[in-house]
Design a protein around this nucleic acid. Structure first.
Length: 614
RNA sequence: GGUUCCGUAGCUCAGCUGGAUAGAGCAGCUGACUUCUAAUCAGCAGGUCGCAGGUUCGAAUCCUGCCGGGAUCACCA
């Protein structure tokens, strides 16, 4: 903000003029004055004490006097201990309001000409989306919106993990037990339908395994391979993977299927395409409900072989090295990491090889300056390694690769596990939260008069706001606990609370006649409630900048809550339409309009829609 | 074990690029709807900021060590 620079420069000039002391402008610490003290902005004087060999209060007074005399917007100052508080004139604040209200793009930063690709969601096609995906999706979406507002051109993408043994399990189970059912014939959502067969496969495998354990072969294996003191139960638990790979009929069939898939066998490919298309229809429905979309999709089936060319380049440049068995590695020990395998000894690529290749393809496709990966924190190390490798390969965007890492969502009973059926399904959750909005609304009856369609739309907005806000307001890094049995809050620090502040403004704006409102030029001095709002609003642009820099949507959520809180208080304490004077009324209406716009802007960044009534 | 993240009120969380007396919400208690929508507002109560050192005029914030919890350390993805 302009005024902050003016104050900082004023301090710098004052130091030079009064003490003949030179400092860089940036070293002047400036912050908002705390509510308990008079003033708008505060300078901390302590850092100058040593160099000036004087006491903080005296320095504060000297500097304050100088700055007030040399700046028209600054009318007064006071010094408390080492803190120098400045007060700005009512004209300045009225000017701020006028400026903000005339700037329809307030908060948006000018285009910076940079492209950033944000990857989020990235589901597997063998099971439906769950609560964990919701956190990922909301963070990714919101981050994209924030970056756009901060001046970037954003490309939203997801990589769909559509191949591998997992989807083969679903396919096989459907082949064996599906009786030709389809999502249409059973009226089950596509992703749920396919997920059902994934679970079914696991069940059948378990049955097969437990039968095998009591067979001749099973007993023999246990007798010859178990460790001393290892119970049968523990042994077979640990042996599960080996069983799947060596003895399991289902396991072998699934693996055969994967091989056929890789060999591009027509029958398998067709089955695969059919089942995946069911899943995509299901995903699309969920994304739509959540209000998110993507600009570009990448499929693992297209990218899983990528990256081999890079290996050659890397070997030539000496970034990679090969072992005697033909495997390719990179040594990252000097960067505090381990040696990392890039290519298996059989020449096939691993996860990170794909990721290297995919990053390059994306850059070829779009020419990106930055990349953001929204992925859970269990992959922190993976991304650290990936980014380091990209740097060593000399990729131009490598210094601007970011992992927006977030903590898992736990249930009160522990972790969510899809195999144990303890996941909270995304669609179920959305449905539930809308029901909760319905219950809360029924107690109030504000929207009871409206027609059904309009009502449903509002309930949907409220329910989703509650859900989204609850998740986004928590800093991404933190793990969070979610209790599906406890209803999502609609009161207090919540999405509906912010929506309600907006709705109150809309209600007021609906009631007055536009033509009646005059100018607030003659409004002499904004009161404390109006000032509190103004001071928060002017922070909006720098909030966006910080949120974009830190990739932190939670700061937007917290800001919008605070703004709503300040407005609710203002609304309670101050009359708008029955204001004491016409200028006061005009001022409050203008202020309310601006608050509504900023709140709506914030919520849009979080993917939350505002209702006009509730 | 190495690396890394987290630890703030009964619960869920802000605050962390060092600044004034550590803030909200929920839950509990008290009060405010003939008023622009009470999904609101005001108040009470609730804290060794995990522990111990250090740096500093000043530490919840930075550094070191420890304790507790999570993640990760595959020729898996």
């Amino acid at each position: 903000m302009q005024i902050l620079n003016e104050i900082q420069n004023g301090i710098k000039d004052a130091l030079l003029s009064e003490y003949n002391h030179t400092i860089p402008v940036e070293s002047v610490l400036i912050s908002q004055t705390r509510k308990e003290f008079t003033g708008d902005y505060t300078i901390v004087v302590f850092p100058f004490v040593k160099a000036l060999k004087s006491n903080p209060v005296e320095i504060g007074n000297t500097l304050g006097k100088y700055v007030v005399e040399n700046n028209n917007s600054i009318t007064d100052f006071n010094v408390v201990k080492g803190f120098l508080n400045f007060s700005l004139s009512p004209e300045y604040w009225k000017g701020q309001l006028a400026e903000i209200s005339s700037n329809m793009d307030f908060g948006s930063h000018p285009k910076n000409g940079k492209k950033v690709m944000v990857e989020f969601s990235s589901p597997n096609t063998n099971k439906p989306l769950h609560l964990g995906h919701i956190r990922n999706i909301l963070l990714g979406w919101s981050c994209s919106q924030i970056l756009e507002k901060a001046g970037y051109e954003v490309i939203k993408t997801q990589i769909i993990n559509d191949r591998g043994i997992a989807i083969c399990k679903s396919m096989l189970a459907w082949q064996l037990y599906g009786n030709g059912d389809t999502p249409k014939s059973t009226n089950i959502k596509g992703d749920l339908f396919v997920g059902k067969y994934y679970v079914l496969f696991d069940q059948k495998l378990k049955e097969e395994y437990s039968e095998w354990q009591s067979s001749e072969k099973g007993k023999e294996v246990y007798a010859s391979s178990h460790k001393e003191n290892q119970s049968e139960e523990n042994f077979f638990k640990a042996y599960k993977n080996t069983y799947f790979n060596q003895y399991s009929i289902l396991g072998n069939k699934a693996k055969d299927m994967l091989l056929s898939w890789e060999a591009k066998d027509d029958t398998i490919r067709n089955l695969w395409m059919m089942m995946n298309s069911w899943v995509y229809d299901g995903f699309e429905e969920t994304y739509k409900k959540l209000g998110v979309s993507f600009d570009k999709l990448y499929y693992e089936s297209d990218t899983y072989l990528l990256g081999k060319k890079i290996v050659e380049q890397g070997l030539n440049s000496g970034t990679f090295y090969s072992e005697d068995d033909g495997s390719v590695w990179i040594d990252l020990e000097d960067a505090g990491m381990d040696k990392k395998l890039i290519l298996r000894s059989d020449g096939t690529s691993v996860y990170i090889t794909q990721d290297i290749g995919t990053a390059q393809v994306r850059n070829n496709d779009f020419g990106v300056d930055r990349m953001v990966y929204v992925v859970g924190d269990e992959q922190d190390y993976h991304f650290k390694v990936l980014f380091q490798i990209m740097k060593r390969l000399g990729e131009p965007y490598a210094d601007d690769m970011h992992h927006l890492s977030y903590g898992m969502i736990d249930l009160p009973t522990g972790k969510m596990k899809s195999r144990e059926g303890t996941v909270v399904d995304a669609d179920d959750l959305v449905k539930e939260v809308i029901e909760e909005a319905r219950n809360s609304s029924a107690e109030r009856g504000e929207i009871g008069e409206m027609d059904k369609v309009e009502q449903e739309d509002i309930l949907r907005k409220i329910g989703l706001a509650a859900l989204k806000f609850m998740i986004i307001k928590i800093q991404p890094k933190k793990r969070m606990i979610f209790d599906p049995k406890e209803s999502v809050d609609m009161q207090g620090q919540t999405g509906p609370y912010v929506q309600y502040a907006y709705v109150r403004i809309k209600a007021v704006l609906r009631k007055y006649n536009q033509n009646e409102v005059g100018s607030y030029e003659a409004y002499t001095k904004p009161n404390e409630f109006e000032m509190a709002l103004l001071k928060e609003i002017v922070e909006y642009p720098s909030l966006i900048k910080d949120a974009a820099e830190n990739l932190d949507p939670s700061s937007i959520a917290n800001y919008s809550y605070n703004l709503a809180k300040t407005y609710h208080r203002f609304f309670h304490e101050v009359r708008i339409l029955n204001a004491e004077s016409e200028p006061a009324k005009a001022f409050r209406l203008e202020l309310s309009k601006v608050v509504a716009r900023v709140m709506q802007g914030c919520m849009e960044l979080l993917g939350i829609e505002m209702p006009e009534k509730m």
